[in-house]
Design a protein around this nucleic acid. Structure first.
Lengths: 189, 189
DNA sequence: TACTCTAGAGAACGATCGTTCTCATCGCAA
DNA sequence: TTGCGATGAGAACGATCGTTCTCTAGAGTA
């Protein structure tokens, strides 16, 4: 038998794959059991309800996302490049074969009438991303008002890429962000 | 008894209200029957399946959306103002008390693993919006590359407003669009 | 009035869901 | 070896879903 920590990790990984690919409501707990190789009894011992599992999946997505963005920024040199690196991260993500849009947006659209905890987790992630972008904007010496604009571009690129089915939105949003950043810097010397 | 045309209209209106507020999968056909005041037998005579009803709802949403955008553009004067009027339309929409994000994005996140017809309808709407924006960009004398950027801003504003719960994203996206437009016009005299 | 046809109300059906329960099996202490 | 506690497999449960079917009441016609 595997220990609780390993079982939790397997469950979250399996549930993430299934939920992201098919949607939360379309995946039964029995499918999660089969994918994770963890018995239903164990699942409900670790997660009292499906909603709790959804929240755990979102929390892990947040970690992975934050780490990816941070790594992408790390590889960039200047503050300006770090800001634009957000869109390089998106570009690489959009090209993954199983890309299906932002999991947070998808879950929000599906469950916003339901669990308040899920709703809260999605909102927190978007606020955290906005705060991260705001920090990069400050480092670049641009006015605060640029932050939400860059964040909106990133959000729009994600849904556009998901629905259109191609990665072009990342480069388009990056170009727009570069123009906005240069214009903002030109006005605040 | 009401005629088929009226029954169709009542059904689509009722289903739209319920689907938009609670999500498609969370609303049973019996709830649609109660809200519309049309018997189940009649519903299934007019729409062979729930998916057909969803598609009909999306088609009507597209008409309403297009009409709203067109009216907003009509009220604007110059080509530049017509382009930015898109965001005034979004602003007014975000302030409606029952605003819950873009119905197309919500449905796509919820059902993209399901009906191909639903998927196609959502994609068509987003392509049509992109084409509309492209036309406004052309009228304004800006380069083609600006079109997708404006569309991405509009998409991002919608999901941001839905999740954050406030209408600020519309004004932020509008300001960004104005900067992008002016920069594009400055480079193509 | 008697007959026919239609449509609505809602029961029924089979499937599936989230969650719980049963029971056989196994590791392990004494 | 015997007994015990915990575990996994999967049946069971109650609810709900999309869809179909039954039955009844009423309108229209001869």
């Amino acid at each position: 038998m595997i220990d609780d920590t390993a079982a939790r990790a397997q469950l979250i990984d399996a549930a993430d794959r299934l939920f992201y690919a098919r949607g939360v409501q379309a995946v039964g707990m029995d499918a999660v059991r089969a994918e994770a190789g963890v018995s239903l009894k164990r699942i409900y011992a670790l997660f009292p309800s499906k909603d709790d599992l959804v929240v755990a999946v979102l929390r892990q997505r947040r970690e992975v996302w934050n780490a990816g963005i941070a790594a992408s920024a790390e590889a960039a040199g200047t503050a300006r490049e770090k800001l634009l690196a957000v869109f390089d991260f998106l570009d690489a993500w959009f090209r993954e074969p199983d890309f299906r849009g932002c999991a947070f947006i998808n879950v929000y659209g599906e469950l916003s009438g339901g669990s308040a905890e899920v709703r809260r987790t999605v909102r927190e992630q978007k606020e955290a991303f906005g705060a991260y972008v705001a920090g990069l904007v400050r480092d670049a010496g641009a006015p605060e008002s640029l932050g939400p604009q860059i964040a909106i571009l990133a959000e729009g690129a994600q849904t556009t890429a998901a629905i259109a089915g191609g990665p072009e939105a990342a480069a388009q949003a990056k170009a727009a962000a570069a123009v906005l950043l240069d214009a903002a810097l030109a006005n605040t010397p």
